[in-house]
């Protein structure tokens, strides 16, 4: 199972990095979203994998998993949403101001001449 989770994190990271390197804004936003999934998962599994032992105190519980990474990741998820929203609105603003959706603020076919 650990191998599978590691693989999932790897695939998410690879996809995120590839998209973040694209030239238009929308794929970059998608890439950042994928990367935040990867990072959140990575942080979460630092508490190791455990099934059926949520960190909710009760007499019937068989045990508890580590609550600390969960608390960290919970706010990270909300903050990533704030970041995604900010970046996408920045992209809209850039498109309105510059007339294109390239991350460098110029048309992609100008790329090589610049």
């Amino acid at each position: 199972m650990e191998m599978l989770i590691a693989l999932v994190i790897g695939v998410l990271t690879a996809g995120g990095v590839f998209l973040a390197l694209r030239g238009q804004t929308f794929p970059v936003v998608l890439g950042l979203t994928l990367m935040s999934y990867a990072v959140n998962l990575f942080l979460f599994v630092m508490g190791r994998l455990a099934i059926g032992v949520p960190p909710v105190i009760s007499d019937a519980a068989a045990g508890y998993t580590d609550p600390l990474p969960q608390a960290l990741v919970l706010t990270a998820i909300v903050i990533s949403f704030g970041m995604t929203a900010f970046v996408i609105v920045l992209a809209l603003k850039a498109r309105a101001e510059l007339g294109n959706d390239h991350v460098d603020g110029r048309h992609h076919n100008e790329d090589r001449h610049a």
Binding site: A6, G10, T13, A14, F42, V45
Partner: peptide
């Protein structure tokens, strides 16, 4: 990057 993160995880 993906392979590195996976290996690290």
């Amino acid at each position: 990057a993906g392979a590195g993160t996976a290996a690290l995880a």
